[in-house]
Amino acid sequence: MSEALRKLKMELKGPLSLILLAVTGILITLPLLVRNPFLINTLMLSFLFGFAALAWNLMAGYTGLLSFGHAVFFGIGAYTTMILLLWWRITPWIGMLAAGVTAGLVGFVIGIPFTRLRSHWFALGTLALGEVVQIIFINWRAVGGARGLETPIMPQCLYWLNFVDPTVHYYVIMGLLGVELFILYLIVNGRIGYYLQAIREDETAAMALGINPFKYKLISITISAFLTGIAGGFYTARFGYVDPFSVFGMMYISINISIIGILGGIYSLIGPLIGALVFVPAAEYTRAYIGSHFGARFYGIHLVAFGIILLAVCFIVPDGIMGWVERRGYIRAILGHGEEGVGGGE
């Protein structure tokens, strides 16, 4: 851990910190400068999906476990927060934490058998799992069934994290994102990070180095599930309504997150965040634009576009935007010093 902190301090000394400061400054002051709720809402959504995609990428990019069922963790987090709120009047702040813990536990339990599966089978298995869980919740009347659950009328205040205006939620998710990035940075630059990536690169060779693949894959899944659960909890806090079709949705959650991840670049830490900041606004604005200009008839055209983009990414830049950026040497130029570490220079 100390080594990772040391590395972070070193990186912050360079031009990187100025860029970080500038960007953060802009993001923080944005709601005050621009009175556009749609923009703020879109950015908030981008942060939310980015948050989830970063969590997803701990498994996909760093451990090589491609999950198409992350909606399971998201949905469980969302429902946990909602149930705690609805039945026991527990504030979403605690609810989000509980969401993470619950999702993490579920991830742990699922992980035990699932870590035995390799690439394609793991992906298929998670896909099937996502469908199973969604169907269960659709038919589970005790937690709302197909109609879902709705928050009661609550006062708009910080305690209940309940506001119509997206500004507060915007700041909250930004803060959560910052914390998550910090945690992930420490993880991937520490022992766990090395071991996970070794497993991704070559599991057999990793075993010869004393690495227990089962143990570390399980760690990866649990942490990923925990973080994704928190994202689900935030969703509840923001939207006040959960139903199996949205929070357990394969297309809406699982696939979205993976597209965002691979678009941004699964082999870098902030890749998924970049992917979210590109993809979600694009999705929101094209949907709004097409919706208002062409009506519902052309619904789906943006999805075709996304499919084409995804295909292009697979063909041309399989390591996503960040991979492309890194290969161009921009990162190294900006940072000034030679990039050491996994995936570093030549």
């Binding site: 690439s119 789906g300 063909f315």
Partner: peptide, 26 residues
Amino acid sequence: VLEAPPVSQIFATFALLMIIRNTALL
């Protein structure tokens, strides 16, 4: 994508799915 890592293969066929399915939807 035959020679690409499984990630690319999976995503490529999935992208295909999205394109075909949503074109039909359109």
